[in-house]
Computed example of a mutant assay.
Amino acid sequence: MATNWKIDPTHSEVQFKVKHLMITTVTGYFKQFDLEVETEGDDFSNATKIEFTADVDSISTNNDQRDAHLKSPDFFDAENHSQITFKGNKYEQIGEDEVKLHGDLTIRGVTKPITLDVEFGGIVVDPYGQTKAGFTVKGKLSRKEFNLTWSAVTEAGQVVVSDDIKLLCEIQLVKQA
């Protein structure tokens, strides 16, 4: 019998990190996102559905001007590509503490395979009787592979925004009755 899990948005976060001028890292996050997982019982290794979406318009880097630029056609083009999606197709237990999540990431209408590193935090019952599962998910991607190609160079020849984007997600799922 299938077990359904939904994201607990108040105990989850979806972040990205990118080098600025190749000397500091800027952190951004999405305020609105969703994740649905379907498993057999509490075993995530046999997940039959892993579907994630993030609302591009909810992007935040704690700078309104930069956020507006990220939503513009120079980057995510939120008006024409309102969501980022990930569809997992394999939750692979490599070792006792190592899990790889394989799937397809779609950004700005471009879909590419990606493998994410997953740390399974465990399953607990909270004080309200809800069964919850926790995960830390990490990954890296090339923004240019997803047509996020805006680029600038300083007068001294420094790249303004790196190509590599680091992903860091803290995910808490709630088992559905």
Rank of each mutant, 00 (worst) to 15 (best):
69 H>P: 04
83 Q>I: 06
25 T>S: 13
142 S>Q: 10
176 Q>W: 08
71 K>F: 03
172 Q>C: 08
146 F>D: 03
143 R>F: 01
50 I>D: 08
80 N>F: 02
103 G>E: 06
84 I>V: 10
154 T>D: 13
6 K>R: 14
113 P>A: 11
166 K>Y: 06
135 F>R: 07
79 E>L: 09
73 P>I: 04
83 Q>P: 04
53 T>E: 09
42 D>G: 10
32 Q>S: 14
134 G>H: 08
138 K>P: 00
95 G>F: 03
11 H>C: 05
97 D>H: 10
146 F>H: 10
43 D>C: 07
24 T>P: 00
28 G>I: 02
129 G>D: 08
159 V>L: 13
65 Q>K: 15
154 T>Y: 09
145 E>C: 02
153 V>E: 15
42 D>E: 15
72 S>I: 05
78 A>K: 01
21 L>T: 08
121 G>W: 06
119 E>H: 10
97 D>E: 12
106 T>L: 05
46 N>S: 14
41 G>D: 12
155 E>S: 14
68 A>H: 05
158 Q>V: 14
4 N>S: 14
104 D>P: 00
154 T>P: 08
48 T>A: 10
176 Q>V: 13
39 T>C: 11
71 K>N: 05
84 I>P: 03
33 F>L: 03
50 I>E: 08
1 M>V: 14
37 V>E: 12
